[in-house]
Amino acid sequence: MREYKLVVLGSGGVGKSALTVQFVQGIFVEKYDPTIEDSYRKQVEAENQQCMLEILDTAGTEQFTAMRDLYMKNGQGFVLVYSITSQASFNDLADLREQILRVKDTDDVPMILVGNKCDLEDERIVSKEQGEQLAKQWRCSWMETSAKSKINVECIFFDLVRQINRKTPEPKKKRKKNSGCNLL
């Protein structure tokens, strides 16, 4: 089974943990407990294949920056989360993306921009256009989600898996085929 290492990034309180837990356990976490770092594993079927997703839920605060490089290096796909109720959380993502690209040393990193808390339409500050615009600029996908109302939660992770598959088709199979050819 192929493993996918996904990393969820974004400012504190935007709902990274809520999205992850909703995806993995199907529960909405009402309480806000600042995360240090949590990793989850979940087996899913994506693109007609069983996949093991290893999702790293990270801290949103600056205090833990020094460890970022490491998990950015290890991560294969990145969920960049902002809250549509906070402009600052939206603005913060640019730096994070820069860092990812720097660590990965490439422009093409499987990545999805996510505007969470879209159930709070009344408190919206970041418009859909803004999100779309930024995604276009970054040439990545974009989605608005709600961990609370279970909107698009699974889509973001599946989208990332798809992106990773597209960028790096499963290496094992190829090798098998190759070796098979050699034998013949």
Partner: peptide, 12 residues
Amino acid sequence: RKYQEVQVTKEI
């Protein structure tokens, strides 16, 4: 409240 809700990664 905002701070609690969205703890902006304030680049200290």
